[in-house]
Computed example of a mutant assay.
Amino acid sequence: MEKITKIQAIKKIILNNGGIADWSTIYTQIENYYPRAKISADWKEGLRGVLYRDKEIVKYSTGVFGLKNKQTWIIPCNIKKYDIEAAFCDNHTIDWTQNKSLLNLSIGDIIYIYVGGQIRNIPYKCEALEVNVKNQIDDTQFMLDRNFFEGDKNYFRIKLIKKMNTPDLSFEKLKANGLNGNCQGPQTIKNNLLKYIEEKAEICDEQLLLTNNEKHELCKISEEELEYYCNMSDLKSGYKETESLSRIRLVDKRIVEKLKNLYKGQCQLCGACVGLEFGENIVEAHHLEYFSISQNNDSSNIIIVCPNCHRIIHKCNFKFDREQMLFCNKTGQEIKITNPGHLKK
């Protein structure tokens, strides 16, 4: 079990009970998070003491508590000093320097990480898991400028929620919607800018970021088998889904459903609407650049095809030529895309 403090345990209870908890709930559940909570005879007084001293906990009524309204932040990342992409590939949870401008950061706060330089965009949405972390995750291999990280520093722990890639979260768009300054330091976001970022983050395609262990796990699965499970609406009885494959299917479903609705069940290759006469649209998603190699789950790497065309692509080893917008195999046979739609340049 992860070691946390008594007050962190109380906050977890509040969060896991819909953001509000009374003394009875706290007393009952505290040992689930802090096993040593009831060792002393005056354990209840101890819980009351740490709760009343914490500034993040508010009292709604007699014996009923909640957490202060959560904040949303933009925090810049200098990729010349820290390789954040590689860090997230190693572990979806990382520690971040908690400087003076982040003293008000709380557990549960949402953090959008802005990457400057040539990227000038927000690629990551995260959540704060812990503040004032004592046992820091060893990520020295991702520190590109060791001198920058020297000295005593405080840290908070964040977990990646979503990786994104959309021009709607570029610096220019953020600035036009109320961003202050050049995003050179942490800042809370509110009002129009908060609404804009949340809307764009919600509707944009999620870029699946697998850890290195998950990538190794997927290498054991063929591309055809991988796409088969991604396209299934339900898993076969008895099939145990790995965590990485489960996340792929979750993300794939969101993107694929948008594309299926866009083409109304019509194959982008042959134009057929399989099952239409029976009131069903039977189409599938195919990754143009094999996902097992690229881990690219963006809509620009997905085409909607009927089951027949999908089987032919795999069984006859057709590869996609994006320049010509067609599939071809080693014998020179070609399958043209009749409706390029979202794939147009």
Rank of each mutant, 00 (worst) to 15 (best):
I84R: 03
D139S: 13
H310N: 12
T97Y: 06
L103I: 08
R48L: 10
C316G: 01
L226E: 06
N154D: 08
K190T: 13
V274I: 15
L288S: 03
Y229L: 07
P307R: 09
V58K: 14
D252K: 07
S24P: 00
L67H: 04
L209S: 05
E225Q: 07
H314D: 10
R146T: 14
T25V: 13
N78Q: 10
C328K: 15
N281R: 14
S106D: 12
K345P: 04
V305Q: 01
K260T: 05
G185D: 04
N16W: 02
Y196G: 04
Y239H: 13
K345G: 02
C273G: 01
T72H: 05
N329Y: 11
G275T: 07
A272K: 11
E206N: 09
E31P: 02
C328S: 15
D138T: 08
E202K: 15
K260R: 15
I221P: 01
M143Y: 07
G49N: 15
T166E: 03
I335K: 09
L208R: 04
L103N: 09
L235S: 08
L51W: 07
L129I: 13
N297H: 14
I7D: 02
K344R: 12
E198P: 00
V256N: 02
Q98F: 02
G271N: 07
R311S: 12
P123T: 11
D139R: 13
D298W: 08
V115T: 11
Q29R: 14
C126D: 05
K190I: 06
L15R: 12
G151T: 10
I10R: 03
Q295Y: 15
E130P: 00
N135R: 09
E2Y: 12
H342D: 03
L102M: 12
N32K: 13
N78C: 05
K162A: 09
I10N: 02
K162C: 05
Q118R: 14
Q8F: 03
L193Q: 08
S292C: 09
